[in-house]
Computed example of a mutant assay.
Amino acid sequence: MTVWDELKVVLVRLSEEQPRVLLGYPMPEVDKGRVPPFRIDLAPWAVTTAEELHRQFGDDVELRVGALPYPPGPEPRPQPVTTPLPDLLDSREITVELDGPAVVRSGHTLRHSLLVRNLSGRELQIATNGQVTAAVVDPQTGEVVGGFSGWQTAPLVIFRVAAGATEPIPLLIDTASYTPQLGYVVPAGEWGIQATLTLGPHPRDSPSRRTPILPLTITA
């Protein structure tokens, strides 16, 4: 029996018993061209599953738990920032707030809403893929420490906010850690979130602006 023959049985079992554990994996229905190592992406909270897969398959699987490799690798060298961050929204024209408190379990995902108020004298158009994805930040420094990890579909969905109006926009908040020192999930505590809005109908040609840091409570 090959590694793939053993692994696909495990993947089928996991997909049936714990469907939210697997975020990305080779389809068990396809046998052609299956040569290790096999890339498997797991939910940020699925460290136990990663331990079991690594124990059984070793280097024949390439595991990621949330945004980080498993087992933990050497600390990556800091990369120079080559793209400047977008400017903050001009609060004289656009303000944002959360549609109620944002509270989520560590390692899990919250689907929330961002209330966008248009204070300008013209219609506001915001280009999205159907939602805006938040980054989790240190509220004191603004450093990005976590957020969403994985694939998203990319349809073009335009949200329109009339002059003087307020409209909700779907907001995706995920708590996978980007920082090895924190582990695989952003731990419980009082954090912040920040999202980037594309202000126009054409994502490539429209300006981007960051929201102010908004409050996020992560629970154990």
Results as ranks from 00 to 15, higher is better:
residue 80 P to I: 06
residue 29 E to A: 14
residue 90 D to H: 04
residue 76 P to Y: 00
residue 44 P to L: 01
residue 50 A to Q: 03
residue 99 D to S: 15
residue 75 E to H: 07
residue 58 G to D: 07
residue 55 R to M: 04
residue 30 V to T: 07
residue 50 A to K: 00
residue 78 P to L: 11
residue 97 E to M: 04
residue 109 T to I: 15
residue 44 P to S: 10
residue 70 Y to I: 00
residue 42 L to N: 01
residue 103 V to L: 06
residue 38 F to T: 07
residue 84 P to Q: 13
residue 71 P to V: 10
residue 55 R to K: 13
residue 44 P to H: 08
residue 33 G to H: 06
residue 115 L to H: 09
residue 77 R to Q: 14
residue 71 P to C: 07
residue 37 P to Q: 04
residue 56 Q to K: 11
residue 113 S to C: 06
residue 67 A to M: 04
residue 95 T to A: 13
residue 36 P to A: 10
residue 42 L to M: 07
residue 27 M to L: 14
residue 114 L to P: 05
residue 73 G to K: 10
residue 57 F to A: 09
residue 37 P to T: 04
residue 65 V to P: 04
residue 105 R to F: 07
residue 79 Q to R: 13
residue 95 T to K: 10
residue 58 G to L: 03
residue 35 V to W: 06
residue 102 A to W: 05
residue 88 L to Q: 05
residue 59 D to F: 01
residue 73 G to R: 15
residue 108 H to E: 14
residue 52 E to Q: 13
residue 90 D to A: 11
residue 25 Y to F: 15
residue 50 A to S: 03
residue 115 L to T: 12
residue 24 G to D: 13
residue 23 L to T: 06
residue 85 L to A: 15
residue 44 P to D: 05
residue 34 R to I: 01
residue 67 A to C: 13
residue 28 P to A: 09
residue 105 R to Q: 11
residue 49 T to E: 15
residue 42 L to R: 00
residue 58 G to Y: 06
residue 27 M to D: 15
residue 51 E to K: 15
residue 88 L to S: 11
residue 112 H to T: 02
residue 89 L to H: 05
residue 59 D to I: 03
residue 50 A to L: 02
residue 84 P to F: 12
residue 37 P to G: 04
residue 24 G to Y: 05
residue 81 V to M: 14
residue 94 I to T: 08
residue 63 L to T: 01
residue 105 R to C: 03
residue 107 G to M: 13
residue 90 D to G: 06
residue 87 D to T: 12
residue 85 L to M: 03
residue 93 E to F: 12
residue 96 V to H: 09
residue 45 W to T: 12
residue 33 G to M: 08
